[in-house]
Amino acid sequence: MELVVALGLIVFKVALLIAILLLLPLPLTWLERKIAGHMQQRMGPMRVGWHGLLQPVADGIKLLTKEDHIPAEADRFLFKLAPILALAPPFVVFAAIPFGETVSVLGNEITLYISNLNVALLFVFAVIGLEVYGVIFGGWAANSKYAVLGSLRTCAQMISYEIPMGFAVIGVVMLAQSMSLLDIVRAQSDVWNVVYQPIGFFVFFVAGLAEAQRIPFDLAEAEGDLGAGFHTEYSGIRFALFMVSEYVVMVLVSVLTVILFFGGWNGVLIPLPPLLWFLLKVAFFIYLFIWFRFTFPRYRYDQLMAIGWKVLLPLSLANIIISGVVFS
């Protein structure tokens, strides 16, 4: 009986998380278009629903009912596989991410995470690295020059930025003496890691921007020079899957930044429920992503590589050495 209840709880948590993550792009696209509009002195969507609130639903219906077109010369199997490969890893990563300690529902203590892996950080980086397969396959299978160019760029970009990203969190692991995200947050209950690891945070956040392929590092889909990069040839629901994965990665990077550097659900000054603190911080970073997008121009490809290898990588290595000397 105990086992059944525990299993049922896990299934329920997984289903809830998947539902939330799948629906999250709806408010996020609305928010992004609204913020973009106001930053450009426009209004953004206004016609569907109150202040365009139902616009993402209309967009979703449009994408679902559109023709699902596959180019004649495409590799049909890989073409169909790629969106799923791009979508799955960000969802899997959330299995290892804690949203808080516990909440009591009807007298039962329920943990706000699906699993407390003791190597959660390693798991996160390993799985998020798989996302690049979706991009490569998508670009390759479409048999189109823009798609191939886009996927080549994305590959190089994601591989180059994963290295400094991985190095940047080593300082955090040193401080917490653990790779469990839960322990990392617990270790920040007094002082947030961003105080001890400002360089680490900087490197992680910039690399995260690149990892989520957001401006100023959205070389993958540079619409000015590549059509739409690796998803040029995608339409309808498959395109929607790529978009969903993009937004989930954006949320994921925000969540990781909050957990690793901004104390997770630890609050300051104002006593709010821990989960609310967590969500507020994540929302701030999501806003930051959108804010960046409508402020900065895109980096050139060689600049992107130079930043990755000549700036971020040395900085992250220096951060490890400094942390090692200071905190040992």
Partner: peptide, 12 residues
Amino acid sequence: LTFGYMFSKPVT
């Protein structure tokens, strides 16, 4: 700058 513009009145 963009933050300031976000709170300006739209011209639409």
